[in-house]
Structure formats: structure tokens, C-alpha cells
Simulated assay, not measured.
Amino acid sequence: MANNAASNSTAVVYISYLYLTEFTWAANILIPSWPAMTLFGFVANITNILVFLRIGVNDNVTILLLSLSISDLMYLTLMTPTVCSYIMLIFAPYWPWPTHIVIGIELLYWPAITCYDFSAFLSVWLGVTRCACVAMPLQFKSVFTKGRTVKLVLASFLLAVCLRIPIMTVNRLGWRTDPNTNISYAYVENHNRRAMTQINDILNRNSILYINFIIMIACVSILSFKLYQASRIRKSYTSASTTQQTSEKPDRQGLSAKDMHVIRSVVLVGSIFIMSQAPFLLFSTARLISDKFDILQTDRNRYLFFTFSIVSLTCSYLNASVNIFVYYNYNSKYKSELSSMLNKFKKPRTEI
């Protein structure tokens, strides 16, 4: 190809860190799992979207869960070029690229992260709405109406985009000429990278991230305590009662069995969010404290940066893919509708 020499030299720079001990396990264990996680994430989120649409978007929780599935699907789609480029750089560094290899890594990275921010906002709103449902059940329906929830989703998306606009202006497509062949090829050029990165680190990677993290921890803690409290009261009430109680009969805390299943699902989604965000939180804090913790450095900090990047990206893939298990186990409508959809694909038995 025209730019083989330029691409190969860049590839050598990118993969030189592979020979360090702290990076080897991440490169050889986590990165090979990305294609399978990507494929599963596509299937899982498309399934979620179809199921929620068939159920009917009639309440605020379903609206948020449907929006979360769409956002996760968008994130996986936009992040796929970056993931594929990383895999090619590491396992096939001398592949003859038709364009500059950094295009695949950086061009759609920040739009993908914007979708991931949108998913984070939706996860936080799920926790907040469930806390509000427990704290003020009588006022809940009048406060979090279907129309307001739709407006909240749209506002969250616009907020995610606006917060990432500074860093998304850094990467631009340009053209270079290979001195060996005198043929031009596309590449990604950076404008005001250091200044925009600092703004992004302070605003998105730390301030907003910490706010979301703290709110989600508070919501998960409150809901977990309410579940524990309701479970104890339900057990004592059931043991003292001589009549069998139905699954929809509320306990003394106003939580029916259906309510408890919904809250459990939100707690699990929130817990997945917390665990997946923790490595990224440490990664962002370290980058804010030390400006040497960056991809552009040439010392050991660069290798640590790549290691944390791989761990964080793997956690984000898990966060965008595994919610289907939560929905299936704790959402009776979801489980019933999914089972009905799967039964339609089964071939009927023919009698001889």
C-alpha cells in the first residue's frame, strides 16, 4: 500500500509496550475477548429493544430501559472501529493499511464515549426514579410521568453531547503524502489537544463522573436497605399470618412482590454501573493528578495508561452487554415476552 512505511512505523510505536510485564496480561487476556463481547452486546441489546417495544412503552421505567438499550447499542457500534483497530495493531502490526491506522482508533472514539455518557445518565435516572418511587409512592406517578420521562431522556442526550463537544473538536481528517511513493493518504490530525483534553478531564472524566458515581452509590444503598427492610417485614408478617398472601399484595412498607422485583433489577443495573465505572474513575483521577499519565508519553506512565485503558474499555463493554440477564431474571413481562419470541422460532413437531 501507499503508506506502508508510515503505518508500520506507527504500529511499532503503538505495540512497543507489549513487552512490558504489566501490560502483557491485559493484551493477551482481555483484548481477545472483545470480539465475542461485541457480538454478544449487539445481540443482547437488539433483543432488549425488540422485547421492550413488544411489551409497550407505557411507563417511565420501560422508557428508560429501552433508551438505555438503544444507547448501549450505539456505543458498541461506534466503538467497534476503535476496538478492531486496537486488535489489528497488537496482533497484526504490519498489516498494509489503506489509510493511516490512527483513523480507526480515534475518529469515532469520542462519539462512542458520548453514547456511553448517555447510558450513564440513564442508569443514574433509573436509580433516582426508583428511590423516588420508594420514598414517595403516592406522588411518584404525578411527578415522573411518561411525557416528562421522554423529555428527560432527550435532555440527557443533549447534555452528553454538549459536554463532549470540546474534546470532539480535537480530531480532524487531513491528508499526508508518503515521501517514498509521493501518494497522499488520509490521517487524523489533532488541534488544541492538550487544552481540550484538560477541559475534558476536569469536566467529564472527573466532575460529572464523580457526581454520577456518588448518586448511583447513594441510590443503590437506599434501595438495597429498603429491600432488606421490606424482606424482613414480609417474612415476619407472613409467618404471623394464617392466610396465604398473593404476590401482588403489598407489605407494610408498600412494596409488593412486583415492586421488589423491579427494585432488585434496578439495584443490579446500578451495581453493574458502579463496578464498571470504578476502574475508569481511578484512571481519570490519576490522569488529572499527573499530566505524565498520557498516551503521548514515552516512559512507564504510557504503558500504565494503556493498561488502564484496556481494563476500562473491557468494563464498559460488560456494562453495555450484560443487562439482558438482569431483565430476564427480574422482569416478568420481559421474560414472558422473550420466551414467546423464542418459541416462534422453534419448528413445530410433525407427526408421522
Rank of each mutant, 00 (worst) to 15 (best):
I87A: 13
F52L: 08
T47M: 02
Y86K: 10
I29S: 07
A26M: 15
T99H: 09
L50W: 10
S67E: 02
F40S: 04
I31S: 15
G104M: 00
L73A: 12
L50N: 12
S67V: 05
I87S: 15
W97C: 08
I113W: 09
P81W: 00
I70Q: 12
N60Y: 11
I46Y: 08
A92R: 07
M88P: 01
A112C: 07
L39E: 04
F91S: 12
I49L: 01
G104C: 05
Y75P: 03
A44L: 02
I31E: 15
A92D: 08
I103M: 07
L78K: 01
I103F: 02
I113S: 10
L66E: 04
L53M: 09
G104R: 05
R54W: 03
L68W: 03
N60G: 06
E106K: 09
N28Y: 15
P98Q: 03
T80H: 00
P111M: 03
W97A: 14
M79R: 02
L107N: 07
A92T: 06
P93V: 11
V57F: 00
P32R: 08
L50P: 14
L108I: 07
N60V: 03
I29N: 05
A26N: 14
L66A: 04
L53H: 13
A27E: 06
L78W: 02
L107P: 01
D72W: 00
P98N: 05
T47H: 04
Y86T: 13
F91V: 10
T38L: 11
S71A: 11
S69K: 08
L30M: 14
I101Y: 04
L76G: 04
N58Y: 03
S69Q: 02
L53N: 15
L64C: 02
M79D: 03
V57D: 08
T62D: 08
P98R: 04
F40P: 01
F91T: 13
V43M: 09
P98D: 01
P81G: 03
S69V: 03
I63S: 06
T47A: 03
L50Y: 08
I29A: 10
L108E: 07
T38N: 13
F52A: 01
I103Y: 06
